[in-house]
Design a protein around this nucleic acid. Structure first.
Lengths: 238, 238
DNA sequence: TCAAAAGTGTTGCATCTACACCCATGT
DNA sequence: ACATGGGTGTAGATGCAACACTTTTGA
């Protein structure tokens, strides 16, 4: 049997959620951790940790995600394994995941997480278009995660990872607009999304300032995102 | 500094090429290696090896690919990092790549590789639809590699990874048909591929039994496949 | 009654698909 | 000449973007 090498395996996760800014528009945001030790001490980095011998990479990603945010993700997928020799002073292979959190989960539970005393002090949420300087190659990793999300939103229902169980078409369109950073025609958006068969209309309506909007829920028969032959083994969905 | 863990990092590659079968039709084929030791001794597996401390994963993939086939790939991309606890008797994280080889390279050089005496004896090429029983989770990995290839052929020019520098539209269509395992209309195929701007017509023609066909070459200004913000750092293209 | 969002209809344009048809070559 | 693949034309279907229009609510 070969003895273990000097290469260590880490897991990091880009955790994305939707957040309403001061202007009233929703935008993407993610939590970063301030590093307390070298290398890159005091710089911001993606949450993560070492892969242990008794857990799979996806479990490790879910674990570090829970430790950072106190939440379980609605979507979790492997992004890429980074292993360039010079990306860290010591030899590290990082298996990076990206995750989506429901907006309502974040609101409801992050306060509880904070109150419980388990919340790490050096975690902070940043708007995606106002990120600080990042440790390692994490800036590029976040860029890649966004690219994957923007691609995937076009041919899957990942956007629903941001929304609660019931939502209006305007909610969904807002999520798409935040992800793609462009305006979408409400009329055409409705038809496209209705044509996919992913949506189940309910008999409930959200009442507000204007004409009430019908609430929809997801057709759970349809996969959140086509992950091919990997199926659900390597990916966690809720 | 944390000491190294008991987790070892391996690299494997699904190496695909186009091969003409007895029926005259082209089909996908890949090389497998017969294992000489436990676990899964005498079973077939993807070529690969351990990641060393001084090489990046993509370099390791290219290295094992050269050792197996004596060839450099025309396309090489990371597929996935597999790390389930129980996928091997000892704890192994496998970074798996997929690669394309040019048909003419395989023909020209595999004989030379064999003659040189460096060719491993326990390597054998298999048609993709006649694979033997495979070690580890390699059957699922190959299935996933094919899924990725079939997806990617729809929105990129990866298919060209199978072809020599100059080729006819019939050559290209044959590659697409082999990948997608379905017949394509020659007239519509021509228009679609011409519309992409990836092809540069030459003034040379391939003469044969019928009307000569114009030879094309690739517009190297256009990326072989959109890999997003990762760029060429983590992927090798020729 | 008015503003604004929910929801429907319509038109024009681009693209895809199927298939008819002509072209050029070796046999 | 003719069989065969190379290459062009075209009509119908489908999908999408733009935008006019109607509906329904709270204020």
């Amino acid at each position: 049997m070969t003895r273990s090498s000097g290469i260590r395996v880490a897991v990091s996760t880009a955790i994305l959620t939707l957040r309403r800014g001061d202007d009233g528009d929703a935008g993407l945001a993610l939590p970063l951790v301030r590093r307390t030790r070298e290398p890159f001490a005091d710089q911001w980095a993606l949450p993560g940790g070492w892969l242990t011998e008794t857990e799979s990479p996806v479990d490790a990603a879910a674990r570090t995600l829970a430790e950072t945010t106190g939440l379980a993700p609605s979507y979790l997928e492997q992004l890429y394994a980074f292993g360039a020799v010079d990306r860290s002073p010591t030899r590290v292979v990082s298996i990076v995941y990206w995750a989506l959190l429901r907006q309502d989960d974040v609101m409801a539970q992050s306060a509880a997480h904070l109150a419980s005393g388990h919340a790490p002090e050096n975690v902070q949420w940043f708007d995606i278009d106002a990120l600080p300087a990042l440790a390692f190659d994490h800036a590029k990793i976040i860029e890649y995660a966004l690219w994957r999300l923007r691609n995937k939103v076009g041919y899957s229902r990942v956007a629903h990872g941001f929304l609660p169980a019931e939502f209006t078409l305007a909610d969904l369109r807002e999520a798409y607009e935040a992800i793609l950073a462009k305006h979408l025609d409400p009329a055409n958006f409705r038809r496209q999304v209705e044509a996919t068969g992913n949506l189940l209309p309910t008999e409930r309506f959200r009442t507000g300032n204007h004409r009430p909007a019908r609430l929809y829920r997801y057709n759970t028969d349809v996969e959140l995102a086509d992950r091919g032959p990997l199926g659900s083994e390597e990916t966690s969905i809720r």
